[in-house]
Design a protein around this nucleic acid. Sequence first.
DNA 1: GTTATCGCTGGGATGGCAGT
DNA 2: ACTGCCATCCCAGCGATAAC
Length: 308
Amino acid sequence: MKGAGPAMNVTLKHLQAFVAVAREGSFTRAARRLALSQPALTIQINQFEEELGVRLFDRTTRRVMLTDNGTEFLPTAERLLDDFESAIADVREVAQRRRGRVSVATLPSIALKAMPDILAAFRDTYPGISVHLHDANASGVQRRVSRKEVDFGLASMWEPDADLAFEAVMRDPFGLVCRADHPLAEATGPVRWRELAGHTFLGLGHDTGIRPLVQSVDGLPDNLRQPEVEVSNIATLEGMLVAGLGISVLPRLAMPDHHPNDLIFRPLVEPELARDICLITRQGRSLSPAAESMRDMVIARLGGSGAP
DNA sequence: GTTATCGCTGGGATGGCAGT
DNA sequence: ACTGCCATCCCAGCGATAAC
């Protein structure tokens, strides 16, 4: 590729050489500044001039002066170098977690119960990284991860997906939830599924991740298998529970806790049931440094707290 | 990329010269 | 004898080139 025509490309070194000579007004001083021998610098400038087809410096043995073309080009060359250097600095800052952005989709229950502490700790450690939190139900979380709307999700598995990786980070046990004056609230501690038979059951709809798990329990009483009342979101369910319309079954994290005196939670046994809260990422795709930091913090804070 | 070396030149040092 | 001017000499330091 040598010879006539575009034989050699302009490189960053050519730009650096040009700007250094222009600033120093001397090949020798510029070469010292670039940690280069003077002849090497002369060659860089010659190559550059040849490549551009323009003489950049008028040099005598005593003086180096920018030509009109060189004077005109200098500000552009300086800006190019500045842009290059600041782009490199930006990448380094992101890599060092001093700047960045991470977005996470979680179940509302996790957003409410676990994320405030995690976010506070994260902001302390990585003040330059902004965090965007989206809450959605289990299928919504999975969809947001698939569509790359978020870096990762935090939810129970809605349905298997080969394009997604699920990493269980905590277990969230199911329990009975009812008003404190309900007969089932007289005892404390674990309660058996079959003890729920015959009570008015308020169930969650099929679009939640909770419903199919409950349906999977062996020997589920009929009133739980076919609920008399079915609602689609937890806020509605909570209102009905507080009103004393019936009982329900929820994971502990989904248990409303701003009515501490109105509602009680008793863990369910025979069998025990829990949902795995998973960290959901796109299969085979690496996380950004910011997202990786958040992932590590989520695992550190959640991992172990709910595990058996 | 380097080192060794080239030829060139600005400017200090020097000295010749004319005017006073 | 002194002063001001200018031509010449010399060399440090310059960028370019050759050789590796």
